[in-house]
Write a protein that binds this DNA or RNA. Structure first.
Lengths: 158, 158
DNA sequence: TTTAATTCCTATTAAATTACTCGGCTTTAA
DNA sequence: TTAAAGCCGAGTAATTTAATAGGAATTAAA
């Protein structure tokens, strides 16, 4: 019952893109360095985000990624589902739309449990917008920047 | 982000025990047959439940398992945590009590997301009592029993 | 027009986890 | 005494995760 690195790394990458690419596209190599994730692996994660319409790519030299829409219109739920697939705790035909076609559905009582877990997870993540994380990130950076002089490596630290 | 078979099979096993062992201990072999899980694997699941104080074992011939306390005093959360370990979506030192000792905690903004997911999952499962599942199971059984005459195999079907 | 930076795409592999199976030991009612 | 149960630890097969690798396509800039 754990998120994989796809979800964990991927959400960090989106926050990075949101914070650091307000005007210009940002290259994966920069995100990779800041977040300490390999470029190759990041590619796979960002591919999912792109497919889901969360980020746009600009190809070629000086290319990179930007948000596909304003951060206030992107929910953490959409990001995590793009990265992880659905966030349901089980593959249950009552929760998903008849995926798996469970033959025991009539007499199954645990499905009520799975449904409640599923709803609570999805409600939670859909209620958080990327813009909130961006705001939090900027706040934290401001604090860190004031107390310590460790803006050594990047101008846009996360 | 899926529950393993431990949680899925194990919760079914607990409901089975709760429904079928009101007076007498019930053998794993019977649960195994009804739930279509191997006895050997069930043993491992039930061992966790026993360790967590959810079921009691009676050893020797005619032995088996019973609930360790009334179903209304056992939450689904306690059952699932006994089977799966904690239900947090990440191993994060802010959520667990300093497990892992994340060195990036100060500047981490995704921890707010993990905390909200974690809380929502735990609140959901702690709000469901085993007794509710037992009641639901009995209701379903009554319906199935009336419409079809398929009480062939067991007196205590689930 | 070349070059270098970058995204795009697919295949392969190493590591970890899951989901069991197996076999022998202990306990106890009949 | 025996058979039916729980108890326990080791081993294994299958699956999933977490990468790594390498080349093709695209494009801004020199």
């Amino acid at each position: 019952m754990k998120l994989s690195t796809k979800g964990r790394y991927g959400l960090r990458a989106v926050v990075d893109i949101a914070v650091c690419s307000e005007n210009e596209a940002i290259a994966l190599s920069q995100i990779a360095e800041r977040q300490n994730i390999s470029v190759n692996y990041l590619e796979q994660l960002v591919a999912r985000l792109k497919k889901a319409g969360i980020v746009n790519a600009i190809r070629g030299a000086q290319g990179g990624y930007m948000l596909a829409k304003p951060a206030k219109d992107i929910s953490v739920g959409a990001i995590l589902r793009a990265l992880e697939g659905d966030l349901n705790p089980v593959d249950c035909s009552e929760i998903n739309n008849n995926e798996g076609n469970c033959d025991n559905s009539d007499s199954c009582v645990t499905k009520y449990v799975w449904k409640r877990i599923s709803d609570s997870i999805n409600d939670a993540v859909d209620g958080i917008m990327l813009s909130e994380l961006v705001a939090e990130s900027k706040k934290v950076q401001a604090q860190m920047g004031n107390t310590e002089a460790n803006n050594t490596k990047q101008t846009c630290g996360i």
